[in-house]
Design a protein around this nucleic acid. Structure first.
Lengths: 256, 256
DNA sequence: ATACACCTTTACGCAACGTAAATGTCAATG
DNA sequence: CATTGACATTTACGTTGCGTAAAGGTGTAT
């Protein structure tokens, strides 16, 4: 039995375009081309197409299907196993994404009270006041009144969405820091990523980033026991590790 | 504070290409363009970018992000909720896919014994023999010896992979049939899909498909109580429902 | 002859950029 | 002052798996 594109497509439940595409990428070539240039498929091609569609339904890429069906000695089981791994990984990512969306929704719902301008302003003011009480003297001594006031002003001008974002970023920094500490290498990829995230986090408060200031903050995290306590609370040595990572990140580790 | 593409990209952790792209699609336009044609971003753009990246990390499409960030009165909560629904749906699909891959792997592992040529040949021969015993007389009377022999020959020439596939397709037909019966409409979309799947299933056995033959098989499913029992076992009335769906599918429902 | 259903190739479109290539600008250096 | 190197610009192809024209040839029936 011989088939043209349409007949085969009708039989397999796919479009003629798909068949032409499969021919184009070399995954299913017709048995022959007739005198008018028509693609003619035979039984062997029907069977091969069924194999192709089988793997396609499992979400295998055509690229991989090509290898599977063109090489009869190909280890399908291994290919499917690897494919499964990829799908599992994908699902893990998706779960994470969903969890994050849930968190964000919850955070936004809490933020509804923040959307109330007065409340949110008061909320931010309280955070600034608390911060001033806790660290005010140190940071004003270190950075000067002007810097600190500018930072506070920037914080006060934050929208609710930005506040949500900075909160999340702060949490992410801690989380990634923990993972980075497990590697034990402040110069490693993960630790440098933490430093980078920390820089971005700072940028929410600073209107002007410099490596020097970043390194200065890092040193303060260790020198000031209240900052140290904040980070070490998560894991002992976290403040030191973060400082070292940031010093390397900023390139300020050699000129101590 | 003003930023060029690179400065802003560095700060936000994205590429300059991305920033140009965001400008191109109108989701983040620079505050102004300087005399040399450089894009210059201000604080407002930094903040907006942070919003954009926030939603991007949650997997929201740029198209949707555009609506969210450009319209301050936009209901973010609703958007995120809908996004969540889409993700959940995606995960459901993925779970299904993984389950199918698992099934296929299990089936392939069983097939390892089938890959043993002798065993598989014997296996297929047994199925043919069983089939001949059960339905041989009826189908030979209905379709003639030649047809039946050709069908058997095609079955015998099946590879293990094809056998796995036809088994799966057969199971899928039953499953979808069940769902279609719940709708109660043999002319409905789902029932017609069942008829289509059934046609594809037949094509594994037939080397020549005709609507007439398809309709004939459908009628036989009801007339022969052993076939009827096979389908009705799943749900009473399944054979009749399948027949009606196929008759409509083949367009043979009016010329009875 | 012509209508109509089929076939062909070529090619744009989708999403979110990566990755050149070709060219212009800015600041610093020999 | 010319050159260098790090920036900037635009244009455009590539990615995946086809859908969807457009422009034209083929096959068969009326």
């Amino acid at each position: 039995m011989e088939y043209t594109v349409q007949k085969l497509g009708l039989m397999a439940g796919i479009s003629t375009r798909t068949l032409r595409y499969y021919d184009e990428i070399g995954i299913l070539k017709p048995a022959r081309i007739n005198s008018s240039g028509y693609r003619i498929y035979g039984q062997a091609e029907v069977d091969k197409l069924q194999q192709i569609l089988f793997y396609r339904e499992l979400g295998v890429s055509l690229e991989n299907i090509k290898d599977i069906v063109n090489d009869p000695s190909f280890d399908c089981l291994k290919a499917l196993g690897e494919h499964r791994e990829k799908l599992i990984e994908k699902r893990k990512q998706l779960d994470l994404l969903i969890a994050n969306v849930d968190k964000s929704i919850a955070s936004l719902e809490r933020k509804i009270s923040m959307t109330d301008p007065e409340k949110f302003e008061g909320f931010k003011q309280k955070i600034i006041d608390d911060n001033e009480k806790k660290y005010g003297k140190e940071i004003r001594a270190k950075y000067g009144d002007e810097q600190v006031d500018r930072s506070n002003k920037k914080f006060k001008s934050m929208t609710a969405a930005q506040y949500t974002e900075v909160e999340k970023l702060g949490a992410d920094v801690l989380e990634t820091l923990k993972a980075a500490m497990a590697t034990g290498d402040p110069a490693g990829e993960l630790a440098q990523k933490v430093a980078d995230m920390h820089r971005r986090w700072l940028c929410f408060y600073w209107d002007h980033y410099t490596k020097e200031a970043h390194a200065g903050v890092a040193r303060m995290y260790v020198d000031d026991e209240r900052f140290a306590a904040y980070y070490d609370r998560m894991q002992p040595g976290a403040a030191v590790f973060l400082r070292d990572a940031i010093l390397i990140y900023t390139g300020m580790d050699s000129q101590e």
